[in-house]
Design a protein around this nucleic acid. Sequence first.
DNA 1: GTTTTAGTTGAATAATTATTCAACTGTCAA
DNA 2: TTGACAGTTGAATAATTATTCAACTAAAAC
Lengths: 131, 131
Amino acid sequence: MAKNKYSCSCGCSSQLCDCEIIHKSVVDKTRKKMLDVSTLKMMTDFYKSFADSTRLRIIDILQNHEMCVCDISVLLNMTKSAISHQLKYLRQLNIVKARKDGKIVYYSLADKHVNEIYAVCLNHVLEESNE
Amino acid sequence: MAKNKYSCSCGCSSQLCDCEIIHKSVVDKTRKKMLDVSTLKMMTDFYKSFADSTRLRIIDILQNHEMCVCDISVLLNMTKSAISHQLKYLRQLNIVKARKDGKIVYYSLADKHVNEIYAVCLNHVLEESNE
DNA sequence: GTTTTAGTTGAATAATTATTCAACTGTCAA
DNA sequence: TTGACAGTTGAATAATTATTCAACTAAAAC
């Protein structure tokens, strides 16, 4: 079942890597500091919220004001269903929160980190485009 | 070609949204502040770098030390090809930079914003899991 | 100069994910 | 008490994207 002719020097059993360690001390030191699986999952989930254009535009819109599903749909020119699916996604990850008033559900940003992450990235791309 | 019975009040021609504006003044005000297409694209591209577990683990590894493709492959137990494809992706987005020494190519993080975004997210998920 | 190794590449496949569609719930107004 | 509307939902489809595979380049070792 080995995928290649190398006997992997990393100590793993599955041996998917098709090479050997080149700098052993750096590799050993780094392995101890690597992210654990559950933290990794939480981090990628958080970034995924911002990595889709529909979701990022929703987050962008909510920077200014809470807003209902209809108004977001109009602003993004998409169906309520598509927006509602993405809002559910964002709510599950604690990126947005919802408040219901009669028939209408108002969404707003849930956490200050959302604003922070958004601001750092905006600075990044603005600096990039100034070079 | 209309997708629904509503005449969209947002002024767009394609009328994909299946509803009308509920809070006109907030919608009008928000529309003026919305992200332009090119900034949106740059931002989602940047976040996408962090939103894939392989790429985030590469970024995590490079927090500590520059590293060659072989050593990253060993640490992540993946083929050099898979790692190389993702490194190319990250290099094109100016997330990592490369330095060649003989046969070996060393990769490291390219921009302080990469460290910043990473740190804010890590704080976020650590706080979440403490609640 | 031939072989080995580090890394890259493009195309194909596999896996993931966004959007659509149709049916549904709950609230309000007539 | 019925109809209209705001919003939600699950399953199917469409679109995107990660990984694999095989072939390749360039540097080093023999």
